[in-house]
């Protein structure tokens, strides 16, 4: 399919996803013709901000995934698989224990936890990309165990809040949707500025160096970018897995591997995926809601296994 037609199709899909996310929910509302003032308020005061949050967080997670994959030279890397989401959850639940009733405290805990998780996994970077991924998986298990311990100690009435955040919750972002959209744009712009160097990194560290890339400096920049974006996304919406894995892969299959295309495509594709997953999560068992991470994990785990088998 010609490139221009692919982008046209992608634009159509984005528009359709936005329309669906606005229309579907506890009740069907036509975004072009809301039937009442209440419908209008539901559309623009509830669904629209949530849609923007889902779009920005999904896009950020996909960008972080694409960067972690280049950073570690491993196409299976992403924040969730590397245990970063788990450490953020430990941070958030610890905060919930220490500062009960403070939503901001939980977010701060998640932010600090995400950075600790990233530092922990990167302290094994000397092992090389394949073993680093393994170290990440083991660390994820460790954070999981620690989390189970904290949950056992958590007073019963706070369990619901902790569990819902742990599986991803787009309804209570402590960061305003405009702020998230700003981070999304800034992250994408930074990524695009590095796209030529990122492309060279696809050839491995030595070939990239020979092509004039200062690999050490690039790694530090990427690390900072990927970590900061992950921390913001996790703080805004809890732990949502596999978006960072599925989306960059899908975009590479559709548009090729060059980053000037993969990064914007991932930033948009991740946003659309999370928007649709969230629409499903809040409407499948309405009026109750499923955590959005359940949907992304249900899609993500089979894709991860398929990729693993394809590599083998």
């Amino acid at each position: 399919m010609p490139e221009s037609r692919k982008w046209l199709l992608a634009a159509g899909l984005v528009a359709l996803a936005i329309w669906l996310s606005l229309a579907i929910g506890g009740q069907w509302i036509n975004p072009f013709a809301p039937a009442s003032e209440l419908d209008e308020r539901i559309l623009w005061e509830l669904r629209w901000p949530r849609l923007v949050i889902a779009f920005a967080v999904g896009g950020m997670l996909a960008l972080a995934g694409a960067w972690f994959q280049v950073l570690l030279g491993n196409a299976l890397a992403e924040p969730y698989v590397l245990g970063v989401a788990g450490s953020a959850a430990v941070g958030a639940v610890s905060s919930l224990m220490l500062f009960p009733g403070s939503g901001l405290g939980m977010s701060a805990g998640a932010f600090i936890g995400a950075w600790i998780g990233i530092a922990a996994v990167l302290s094994f970077s000397y092992l090389g990309p394949a073993r680093l991924l393994l170290a990440g998986i083991v660390l994820a298990a460790f954070w999981g165990a620690l989390l189970a311990l904290l949950l056992a100690l958590l007073p019963e009435h706070r369990l619901g809040l902790a569990l819902s955040w742990m599986m991803g919750d787009l309804s209570t972002s402590p960061i305003h949707e405009g702020g998230l959209l700003f981070v999304w744009i800034a992250a994408l712009a930074c990524g695009l500025a590095l796209s030529r160097s990122l492309d060279a990194m696809l050839l491995g560290e030595m070939h990239a160096t020979a092509l004039g890339v200062d690999v050490r400096r690039l790694r530090i920049r990427l690390l900072f970018l990927a970590s900061a974006v992950t921390a913001v996304a996790v703080t805004a919406a809890g732990t949502i897995g596999f978006v960072g894995l599925i989306v960059p892969h899908l975009m590479r299959l559709l548009f090729g591997s060059l980053h000037r295309v993969v990064l914007p495509a991932s930033a948009i594709g991740g946003g659309v995926l999370l928007m649709l997953a969230d629409t499903g999560a809040r409407s499948m068992i309405s009026p109750a809601e499923l955590p959005v991470g359940v949907i992304t994990a249900l899609i993500g785990v089979p894709v991860f296994l398929w990729l693993l088998l394809r590599r083998a």
Binding site: L202, G204, A210, R252
Partner: peptide
């Protein structure tokens, strides 16, 4: 690094095919 790349071309081990170029 970028100035060196204007002076020297290096060929060594084959690059990985991980990301599908």
């Amino acid at each position: 690094r970028s100035d060196l790349a204007r002076e020297i071309a290096w060929q060594g081990s084959l690059p990985p095919t991980e990301f599908g170029l």
